[in-house]
């Protein structure tokens, strides 16, 4: 089966000087993605300026179905260099409220290694920033 995928459309940086230069590629699949947009609206994230980042984060925000799982892997492969995967919200982490659905993947850690989980349904925009900093500051 062929899948139509493109690189994640929206790439952001953390606003302000938080000590990390990161590009956050938001793979928005469901309502959690609205909170990523809320983080942009509040100025916690700013559009990517194209400079060379220290880290690249693939932020999976939303419900992943088994049908969509190849697209998540494809999105990771579309990003350059080492990619840190962060699971944003209950659905991406475990399947969330849909954990019993036969079509829903019970957490993206079944597909690819996950460096950090941000809990919430949906998480607040501040939780996104906190979760990203947790992941990036722990790294060498």
């Amino acid at each position: 089966m062929k899948w139509v995928t493109s690189p994640p459309a929206s790439a952001y940086r953390l606003a302000g000087d938080l000590g990390v230069r990161v590009v956050v590629a938001n793979l928005g699949l469901a309502c959690c993605s609205m909170e990523v947009e809320a983080a942009v609206a509040r100025g916690l994230l700013v559009p990517d300026d194209g400079q060379d980042p220290e880290s690249t984060v693939l932020l999976v925000s939303g419900t992943v179905t088994d049908a969509l799982a190849p697209a998540v892997l494809s999105a990771r492969d579309h990003l350059d260099g080492e990619v840190v995967v962060v699971s944003f919200g209950a659905c991406a982490s475990t399947g969330g409220p849909y954990w019993d659905a036969p079509t829903v993947t019970k957490g993206i850690d079944q597909l690819l290694p996950v460096a950090g989980y941000v809990p919430g349904c949906p998480p607040r925009p501040e939780a996104l920033v906190a979760g990203l900093l947790d992941v990036l500051r722990d790294r060498p």
Partner: peptide, 12 residues
């Protein structure tokens, strides 16, 4: 078929 009442959700 998942939406039939007799279908048990395997996860549960």
């Amino acid at each position: 078929p998942p939406l039939r009442k007799g279908t048990v959700l395997a996860a549960r």
